[in-house]
Structures are given as structure tokens and as C-alpha cells.
């Protein structure tokens, strides 16, 4: 038995924001760096770098993950959505609209992660209670807004359905 490890670049295929992408990544490459530095998708941010803050959140097959602590090679064959894939400028996602309307955006550094986390929540539970929203946001920090407007934005979006 001889198992060959990946030592250098290996090719991965990802459905990224709905489009197929193929690229070569090294085993130690983090998804966040690949998205930001190679694919120029700068929406996901690096902050705490420890899966506490949620600034780097992306959706992996619909579920939120921390791109800062996720190997890019693991994305092979999977679907990734970043904030850039959430809506178009002409047709924003309802969450994006709600975040604007409710002033849930201040410095914006947490915004992508908040939006994507909320997106995953609403996919799972289209009409969450306030408690559920707060529980789901446990891993998304915001130092500007005081959270209230973010929670309101998500709830407004949920109720709009």
C-alpha cells in the first residue's frame, strides 16, 4: 500500500457563485486567501482568524464555513457562495435590501459574513424567531452596530416572506 500525498499544487473544480471554476491550489492554501488573492473576491474578510468573528464566512454547499480556517483543496467538487454571489447590483438579495433599509451596515467589515449566515438561516428556517436569529448569529461579531439593526433586518426579511 502506497498512499501518495498532495505535496504541491493540485487541481480543484468549484462551483463558485454559480459558475464553474477550475484552478490549482497548494495543500496549505486557505480558501480565504484563494478567494481573495487568486480570484479577486474580496468580500470575505480576515479578522479574528480563529472562527470566532465570522467576517470570512462563505457558504459551502449552502452551509456557513470560516474560509480563514478551511483548506481550499476541500472545496473541490463543491459549491461555494460568497457575498459577491448573493445578488446582483440590479437585483439585490432581499437580505441585502433589508440590511440597507435597517441601517444594519456601518463599517461593513462584518457585513458579508452576516448576510451569508442569515442566508443560510433563512434557507433552513424561513420564519425564524428572534431567539433563533440571535442563536444563529453567535459566531458573527459586529463592533459597530450593536447588533440590534442586524437582527431587525434579518427578521424583517423573514417576515416579508
Amino acid at each position: 500500500m502506497n498512499i501518495i500525498p498532495i505535496r504541491s499544487s493540485c487541481s480543484i473544480r468549484v462551483t463558485l457563485n454559480g459558475r464553474p471554476v477550475e484552478l490549482a491550489v497548494r495543500p496549505e492554501a486557505l480558501l480565504l486567501d484563494v478567494l481573495r488573492d487568486r480570484l479577486q473576491l474580496k468580500g470575505a474578510k480576515r479578522s479574528c482568524d480563529m472562527q470566532v468573528c465570522g467576517a470570512c464566512t462563505v457558504l459551502l454547499d449552502g452551509a456557513p464555513v470560516s474560509a480563514c480556517t478551511f483548506l481550499a483543496v476541500e472545496a473541490d467538487g463543491r459549491e461555494i457562495v460568497t457575498v459577491e454571489g448573493l445578488g446582483t447590483e440590479e437585483r439585490l438579495d432581499p437580505l441585502q435590501e433589508a440590511f440597507i433599509d435597517h441601517a444594519a451596515v456601518q463599517c461593513g467589515f462584518c457585513t458579508a459574513g452576516m448576510l451569508l449566515t442569515a442566508k443560510a438561516l433563512l434557507a433552513e428556517d424561513p420564519a425564524p424567531t428572534r431567539e433563533r436569529v440571535v442563536h444563529y448569529l453567535r459566531g458573527n461579531l459586529c463592533r459597530c452596530t450593536g447588533y440590534r439593526k442586524i437582527v431587525e433586518a434579518i427578521l424583517a426579511c423573514a417576515h416579508a416572506r
Binding site: 460568497t82 448573493l86 445578488g87 439585490l92 441585502q96 440597507i100 451596515v105 461593513g108 458579508a112
Partner: peptide, 8 residues
Amino acid sequence: DALEKVTG
């Protein structure tokens, strides 16, 4: 700046 911030 809201639009640029919600779209990344």
C-alpha cells in the same frame, strides 16, 4: 456606501 458594502 451601503450598496458597495452589502455587495462585497
